[in-house]
């Protein structure tokens, strides 16, 4: 019945929102107090050797991924998937979820993102040597911010990104598809409930391909970096980062 469906959507939305808030790493309120890096601090980042800045970013991404794994574990049904599929989904989707979550720690007014204790503009990441990737990531965060999503909407969108049934190497595609459909229905229900414009769900769908391009670009940049500095990656990068992104 429609009432039962509405109740089920509300219930799922509630569980996923709770999981999101419990694992979101930073609360918006605590970030409001934070300032931007001063020029001399920006220069310190810019003067870091490329390897050191890559290592720092790999560490930050790995920290964030641990929260995403915790989020995944609390999504209804995720832990009922076989472990192969849990790993496939996290391997393909954890960076995408971080990019979605980034809109929570992004200030579109001055194009800065929370990084290593303060708000940082794209110039902070100059020594990575990937200006195009950084510019694309900032553009993506800006466009996500312009949708003014509420936490509940970010939570459900993140969950649906993670539960993408079209990832390669899934054993039980059908089960993932069912979970994704349930999450997407709950997202649509929440958008309707919040009186969002009709096009928002479709706009979010278009973000999925942007996320995939960003992750592909990250892999490409990592391969190029690793070709020049194989020992840095091997000895200094966090093991979890290597498992996810730098498998041989």
């Amino acid at each position: 019945s429609p009432t039962a469906t509405t109740a089920a959507h509300d219930h799922l939305a509630q569980i996923i929102s709770k999981s999101h808030l419990e694992t979101c790493q930073y609360l918006r309120e605590e970030l409001q107090e934070m300032s931007c890096f001063l020029q001399e601090e920006v220069e310190k980042f810019q003067n870091k050797p490329q390897e050191a800045m890559w290592q720092l970013c790999a560490v930050k991404i790995t920290d964030a991924i641990q929260y995403v794994v915790e989020f995944a574990k609390r999504i209804d049904g995720f832990m009922n998937l076989c472990q192969n599929d849990q790993i496939v989904l996290l391997k393909a989707g954890s960076l995408e979820v971080i990019l979605v979550r980034m809109c929570r720690v992004f200030d579109p007014q001055n194009n800065t993102v929370y990084f290593d204790g303060k708000f940082a503009g794209p110039d902070v990441f100059k020594s990575l040597g990937c200006d195009d990737l950084i510019a694309s990531v900032f553009d993506f965060a800006k466009s996500m911010c312009s949708l003014h999503l509420e936490e509940e909407e970010i939570a459900l969108f993140s969950a649906s990104v993670l539960l993408s049934a079209d990832r390669s190497w899934l054993r039980d595609k059908l089960q993932v598809e069912r979970l994704q459909q349930k999450t997407e229905s709950a997202l649509q229900h929440v958008l309707q409930k919040n009186h969002r414009d009709d096009g928002l769900f479709e706009k979010l769908r278009t973000k999925v391909s942007a996320l995939r391009s960003l992750c592909a670009l990250h892999s490409q940049k990592l391969s190029a970096f690793r070709a020049v500095y194989p020992d840095t990656v091997r000895t200094l990068f966090p093991p979890l980062y290597k498992e996810l992104f730098a498998a041989d």
Binding site: Q66, R74, L240
Partner: peptide, 16 residues
């Protein structure tokens, strides 16, 4: 699998 040792561990740890 050995290839995803840490991810395995994280998934198996009980939710804190």
């Amino acid at each position: 699998k050995e290839k995803h040792k840490i991810l395995h561990q994280l998934l198996q740890n009980s939710t804190s």
